[in-house]
Design a protein around this nucleic acid. Structure first.
Lengths: 350, 350
DNA sequence: CTGAAAGCGCTTACAG
DNA sequence: CTGAAAGCGCTTACAG
């Protein structure tokens, strides 16, 4: 392996091009006030020698690293949706000449010894950090207190907190609202919501459902406590329980696709079909693969959310002033084939 | 936001502790030859001022960054398995005091202008890079030619190439072999393999299947060309085609779980059940969630593969010598409930 | 327009 | 054991 230190430096270029190192820096950084002849000479010798600017030393002198950290907080797994966030973040960062540093961090539950991630704590690493995962209020407070530069995904936060934080958010609250209204328009009355409120990011979905049911004057019926970490299992067991209790249900809004798949399987085992017996809507944060399901879903473009997070992070790391802009990425409701209209008589059937 | 530049430096510590900056550096780096009194004084003032060593400038003077790059090559999506790799890499790196830089890179198909990723090209960024995704031989050659420090996942490479490369590999070839033998032991003869050989990492699975069938003197029957990028769909259509052609089949080895789920759905639509009519084995690189499937699978601990990749990358970035060690992570075969023994008479039935 | 020089925050021989 | 100094590879006022 060629040792890294053998890479040519500006000094080498300067010597070969018979100019000062300051001049080399100026032409390589595209400054205007350089003699065209010198510019040409420097550029060609830099090209010949395969020169590449050393990002690290530039960062030292400019006191910024052009690195954005993505911190997965208090969460071991990287979900499919979070992978998409990462891809969106990487896309925007690399387009802007930034680099992305990935780290997980488990915050101590004892507030007094709550250590912050090295990626942002250590000078010389990330200029700004993007927080996703399970964001507890006390963690955000610590970032505020220490004056650290960060952006966070509000959907992943326990509470949105101080308005001056200006988070990025996706609007699945409204997506859940629309989905619920759609079911009501189809004639459904017994519309259930299934989710897991210990996953912070699902709470807004529940809120959207509740808002819709309130406006529609329908009685909300929800199951928001998860029995396990496996959403498929949770969907399966929740719907089984509902059916065994013989509670009325003609439609279900599931807080995730995985949950919806579990629901479908549970229904199947109780000899019920989608959408013949029960209409079903999920939340699709997956790769967009339908998995043969044709599930009607609320869809959020998580890659776009990632791009927006990166954009904010870069803006904050470049800005002198504190930042003051909220970002809202809309959700879209995609009708596929797992819902059907209910005729009047059917209300009694179940 | 507190400006990054307000963080205390060694100079600040030195002034406050009335010592030279060299001494500060020595105690903070744990060098032995320091007077205990001075050591104590420096440590306590560093603690009081909340000092943190600047990683960037240390990197400059030591000419290594303690950053490992993970490059997803020629692949837009981060699969579930690749997410696990990332988690394993992050785990090992952060335990060793390293940082992980994530980037995607699309290599130009024209070999002459094949640009390498900034993360490794640019001095001052990653010390070594981990290559995953779809690794074409010419890309690896370019890394070799330029003497760049890298590790790659052999399962993701078009060909393993030069033996001196010493890749990390997981042994799904053997996993596929075992799975196939297991089916044969159960009495199956008409064992199919379904996969997608354009995904480099599935080719070894096919090879394992072929080796087993050869040793067993059974006729291999495989479908290794994918019709789409959606593995569920591919599984679905492949099995439908086989059934429509009325080819004999009592068992299927599917190159991924996603594919296997598609197969199961396809069988279901043809009124066939697993394992009653067809035994089914998948490859599980997922989070370990069974998705209610109870699928018999070959399982690879992708987090462990990630750890090993990171370990090699760190070793290479610290070593002076070229490196000389292959790493093989074993696969394990997990029997669940989607296979059953075949009685003699049944061979004719299909 | 250009060069000489100071500086970014460290580490590390080199004297003492 | 400790300090003064050189150096890592850049950028950026400051003179000229």
């Amino acid at each position: 392996m060629r040792s890294r230190s053998s890479a040519p430096t500006m000094k080498d270029i300067a010597r070969r091009a018979h100019v000062s190192i300051g001049t080399v820096s100026r032409v390589l950084n595209g400054h205007a006030d350089v003699d065209p002849l010198l510019r040409e000479r420097v550029q060609s010798t830099a090209r010949k020698m395969g020169y590449r600017l050393n990002e690290r030393t530039r960062a030292t002198v400019q006191a910024k690293s052009r690195m954005i950290g993505l911190i997965l907080c208090n969460d071991f797994w990287l979900s499919a949706a979070q992978s998409l966030l990462l891809l969106g973040i990487e896309e925007h960062c690399s387009a802007e000449g930034y680099y992305v540093l990935f780290a997980r961090h488990q915050f101590d539950s004892d507030e007094r010894k709550l250590a912050l991630p090295a990626v942002i704590r250590t000078p010389g690493l990330a200029d700004c950090v993007i927080l996703v995962g399970r964001l507890e209020e006390k963690v955000l407070k610590t970032f505020d207190r220490d004056g650290l530069s960060y952006v966070f995904l509000a959907n992943h936060a326990e509470e949105s907190g101080d308005a001056s934080r200006h988070p990025v958010r996706y609007d699945d609250e409204n997506g859940a609202y629309e989905a619920t209204c759609y079911l009501a328009q189809l004639g459904h009355r017994d519309i259930w919501y299934l989710g897991d409120d210990s996953r912070f990011w699902q709470r807004t979905r529940y809120r959207g459902y509740l808002r819709a049911m309130g406006e529609l004057k329908l009685e909300p019926r929800a199951h928001t406590i998860a029995l396990s970490d496996d959403e498929f299992e949770n969907g399966h067991s929740a719907v089984s329980y509902i059916l065994e209790q013989q509670w009325p249900v003609t439609a279900i809004v599931a807080a995730s696709d995985e949950l919806a798949f579990g629901v479908r399987e549970g229904l199947r085992q109780h000899r019920k079909e989608v959408p013949k017996d029960v209409s079903l809507i999920g939340f699709e944060n997956q790769t967009g693969h339908s998995r043969g399901s044709n599930l009607t879903s609320v869809s959020v473009d998580m890659i776009e959310v990632g791009r927006q997070l990166a954009k904010e992070a870069i803006a904050r790391s470049e800005a002198e002033e504190p930042f003051s802009r909220d970002v809202l990425v809309p959700a879209s409701f995609i009708k596929r084939s797992t819902c059907r209209p209910l005729r009047k008589e059917e209300h009694m059937l179940l």
